[in-house]
Amino acid sequence: MSATRIRPKKKGRILYRRPLSLVDRATHFCPGCGHGTTHKLIAEVLDTLKIREKTIGVAPVGCAVMAYYYLNCDISEAAHGRTPAVATGIKRCLPDRIVFSYQGDGDLAAIGMAETIHAANRGENITVIFVNNSVYGMTGGQMAPTTLNGQKTATSPCGRDSRSMGTPIRICELLNTLDSPWHIERVALNSPAGIRKARKALLVAFKGQMEGKGYSLIEILSPCPVHMRLSPRDAVRFITEGMIPAFPLGVFRKEGKPVA
């Protein structure tokens, strides 16, 4: 499958078209899923920076495991949660390539928490893309480490009870206690403006890696309409009204220093 281009017949300036680094095929993602948007943004950034041919992605276990069907670059699967360890192995062996890991909340903040923290703490020169949609998607909507208090999931049927199930883990804040990361930012796919910020954040992170700046993590609050049990529109509203109050947006780490 190659990324074929539909050339416009009439002369004009293209304001937006499908990025070249995105393979021309339909995704398996559900309608309104933020993974599609995130894939698109990554592809756009690979195009903008002209790094598709030197980029190696690491796809996790979860909905994004089939990233190799959609992103037109070299990609390796990783065992659940081990994504940053695999990315570390690749980057250390090929330091002049661009390496990113693409992880969901279960992969990054539950089973892979140790790998997440230690890759950040070593300041690995990789870009971690963290899709936080507050639930486990592929396995059927179970409670995630980032599920909101009171949020109903398959494994918190009466809502997440903080007394016995803990509270949502804020990864950006947690990693910002470390000295080594270079850039940490949280964005949200809840509006066109939010998506533009997400694109910009990814651009900063990948560009930083190209310049050898070190570890960057972009947390993307993302809709999972099916398992949020909402329509795509309402899932986006849930990000704004439910998730952002629990996961404040912004740049936490800039140029290697915490943002006050």
Partner: peptide, 11 residues
């Protein structure tokens, strides 16, 4: 666990 997966990444 991390070590074997770093090996995976390296190879």
């Amino acid at each position: 666990v991390a070590a074997i997966n770093m090996v995976y990444g390296a190879v």
